[in-house]
């Protein structure tokens, strides 16, 4: 069966559809408030493909399959969407209750190195003399450790973000690389799967665990990606275009999830 692909969509909508394809039915998935694109992608997966996903949304657990459309909300503490709640998340239960851990998770970053190690602490060689103090790790260190799969996601793609070496590491990726980079650190093998940017999708080459270009978004060239990445990327012989959203995905995104059009700007 050929899929009916949409013709006219934004990069944010493209990325939301890509993220939607990473969710599996029956999983627990945290829906952040601040990252609109991953949030839209997870909700898209839920409404179209994963009716049994248990959403962790504004400190509640719920299922939104029968909601005609999502009310807009901007903060993780906005209690208005909590009208959907089936259960409250007691945030301090994290250590005690594995049901608070998502199966898949999206991690943002100020810096990312070739092995997918990432930094939300700050920028600067000396921790006591930071040139830019970041927001902090939030829950990314622990969540990325316990989830089955995690994805790196950044809202711009440039040489300040993609660096040879992070000034600090707040979430470990594939460590120093190699097939057993994480096992050498005593960690399970659940490093980042993909790194998702406004230019492209990257994965990690299995032997070296170095970042490798997987696909470029429509209108982006391989050279655009290389020029904006501060380390040597593995470039396969053939780099396809990122799969576009389907007509149906775009319709559900626009009519039920992103009613305000934040992904269209």
């Amino acid at each position: 069966m050929t899929r009916a692909y949409a013709q006219d969509f934004t990069t944010k909508e493209l990325i939301a559809a890509f993220i939607a394809h990473q969710v599996r039915d029956g999983e627990r998935v945290a829906v952040g408030a601040g990252l609109h694109v991953p949030r839209a992608g997870i909700l898209l997966a839920h409404l179209l493909y994963c009716p049994n996903v248990r959403l962790y949304i504004v400190m509640t657990f719920t299922n939104l399959l029968k909601e005609p459309r999502m009310e807009p909300f901007y903060t993780v503490t906005d209690f208005r969407p909590a009208k959907w709640a089936e259960a409250y998340v007691l945030h301090d239960d994290f250590q005690e209750n594995p049901r608070l851990v998502s199966n898949m998770f999206v991690v943002g970053a100020l810096q990312i190195d070739p092995y997918g190690n990432s930094n939300l602490i700050g920028v600067g060689r000396d921790y006591h003399r930071l040139s830019f103090r970041g927001p902090g790790a939030v829950g990314t260190t622990s969540m990325a450790h316990y989830v089955d799969r995690y994805y790196l996601y950044v809202q711009s793609h440039d040489r300040r973000i993609f660096v040879e070496k992070c000034d600090f590491i707040s979430t470990i990726g594939w460590g120093e690389g190699g097939p057993d980079g994480r096992r050498r650190l005593g960690l399970p093998d659940n490093g980042p799967i993909y790194c998702i940017t406004p230019l492209c999708i990257m994965d990690f080459e299995p032997r070296t665990k170095r970042m490798r270009l997987k696909s470029v978004h429509p209108g982006v060239t391989v050279d655009d990606v290389v020029r904006n990445t501060g380390f040597e990327l593995i470039i396969p012989d053939v780099v396809p275009e990122t799969e576009p959203p389907t007509v149906e995905e775009l319709r559900v995104l626009r009519e039920r999830i992103d009613v305000e059009g934040m992904l269209r700007t």
Partner: peptide
């Protein structure tokens, strides 16, 4: 990023007990 926090850290006027939410709990 919270502005006065950022300013105080970058000026070396505030110590941060760096952690993530898991370590905090």
């Amino acid at each position: 990023v919270a502005p006065m926090f950022r300013a105080a850290v970058e000026r070396g006027e505030l110590q941060v007990w760096e952690c993530d939410e898991g370590m905090y709990y």
